[in-house]
Design a binder for these strands. Structure first.
Lengths: 198, 198
DNA sequence: CGAGTGATCTGAACGCCGTCCCATTCCATC
DNA sequence: GATGGAATGGGACGGCGTTCAGATCACTCG
C-alpha cells in the first residue's frame, strides 16, 4: 500500500533482476513466474510492472544479464591463454551452457512476439560475444583470408551452438553421441582447414 | 454430457491430433492451448485428458506428428534426385523449418520435465530422420571411412540445425548474416573434405 | 508548519491456463 | 427393462500475466 521508497528505482530494478535471475536459473524458463519474483523480494506484482512494463521486457532484461555473465565467463577463460584459444572458447561455450543450464536455455526458449525486435542493448550484448569469436578466428586465419573472419565466426558459432543445443536437449543422447564437445571441435577444425588456418 | 460415441477412441485421437497440429502451426507453441483444441473439435477439455492423459503427452504426440511430416518431406525432396543429394537435404531442412515454422520450433521449445525421457516411438522418429542423413553421408564418403558416417551425420545435423535455428530465431539477422543456407552447406562441405569425400 | 500534489505501491479483478474429478449420460449386455 | 461400466462434460482449483483504481507517503510551496 502506498509509496515506500525502501529502494530507489535503480535499486529496485537491480533487486528484481537479481532475484529474477536466481529464479530463472533455479526453475527454468517454463516455470519462471514474475509473481513469484515479486513475492520473494517482498513487493507486489504491480511493482514489477511499474519497473519493467511487461513480462517480455523483464525476460529480455534477464536474458541480457545472462549474456553479460556469459561474456565475462568467456573472457575469463581466454585470459592469459596462449595456445588452443579456439578450443578453449568452444569448451567455455559448453561449460557455460551446462553450468548455467536454465539461464542459457532461456536465451533461446524465450521469444518476443513476431515482428518485435530486441532492444539495441540486447543486440549489442549478442554482438559482443560474437566479436570475441571473430577475433579468435581472425587470429588463426591466414592473413589473406582474414576478411572472412566475421562470416566464418557466425557460421562456426551456429555449428557449436547446434552441438551444444543437442547435447543439452537430449537429442545427442537419443542418437548415441557421447562426445559433443569433441565433435564441435572437429567441425571447427574442418572449417579452418579449408582456409589453411588452425 | 455423458457418453456420445460420435467417434471411436482412435478417431478421437486422430481428430485431436489433426486440430492440435493445425493450432500449433497457426499460433505457435507459446500460445498453444489444449482447451482451445477441445473447443474447436466440439469436445470438452476432459476428453483430451481421457485420450492423452496430460498436456505433455499431447505435445509429444503433436511433435511426433511433425517429425512424421518432416521425414516424408525430406524423403520426397530426395526421391529421384541423383546429384547433390546432401545439398538437397540441407535445403529441405531449411525449407521445412521455414514452411512449418511454428511446428518445427515447437520440437525444440517443448521440453519434458527433467529426467523424463520421450517414448520409444518418439525416439524412433528422430532416429529415422537421422538415418536418412547417415545414408547420404555414407554415400559420399570414401569406402574406407564409411564407418564414420553415423557420428559424422549426427555432428553435421547439429551444425545444420544451429544454422537453421539462428536463421529462424533472428540471431543471424542480428549479426548480419544473410545466407544461412550457404553457410550451412559450406560447413558440411568442409567436414566432408577432411574425409576426402564429397 | 500545514496543505496539496504527484510519484509510488498494493492487491483485487479479469480472463486465461493445465489439471482433477465426479455427476451425468449413453451403450451393451443380460 | 434393468444394470453395470465406459465415455463425456464441465465446474472447481490454483496459478499465470496484465490492468488499474485507490491508498499511501515524500515532497514542495506558500
Amino acid at each position: 500500500m502506498g509509496r515506500r521508497s525502501d529502494h530507489s528505482r535503480e535499486e529496485l530494478r537491480e533487486l528484481i533482476l537479481q532475484e529474477g535471475h536466481r529464479q530463472l536459473a533455479q526453475v527454468g524458463f517454463a516455470r519462471f513466474s514474475a509473481r513469484e519474483v515479486a513475492k520473494r523480494i517482498g513487493y507486489s506484482i504491480g511493482t514489477i510492472y511499474n519497473v519493467f512494463g511487461s513480462y517480455d521486457a523483464l525476460l529480455l532484461a534477464l536474458n541480457g544479464r545472462t549474456l553479460d555473465i556469459w561474456l565475462a565467463f568467456l573472457e575469463e577463460r581466454l585470459a592469459g591463454r596462449e595456445e588452443r584459444r579456439l578450443d578453449a572458447a568452444i569448451e567455455a561455450y559448453f561449460d557455460f551452457a551446462l553450468g548455467e543450464r536454465h539461464a542459457w536455455t532461456a536465451l533461446y526458449d524465450f521469444r518476443l512476439p513476431e515482428g518485435v525486435l530486441p532492444s539495441d542493448s540486447y543486440r549489442e550484448k549478442v554482438a559482443a560475444i560474437t566479436e570475441v569469436i571473430v577475433r579468435e578466428i581472425a587470429a588463426v586465419l591466414p592473413p589473406d583470408v582474414r576478411e572472412e573472419a566475421p562470416a566464418l565466426a557466425r557460421s562456426l558459432l551456429a555449428s557449436v551452438h547446434g552441438h551444444c543445443f543437442f547435447a543439452l536437449n537430449g537429442t545427442f543422447a537419443m542418437l548415441g553421441e557421447d562426445d559433443p564437445v569433441g565433435a564441435a571441435k572437429a567441425r571447427v577444425a574442418d572449417a579452418l582447414a579449408r582456409f589453411g588456418g588452425g
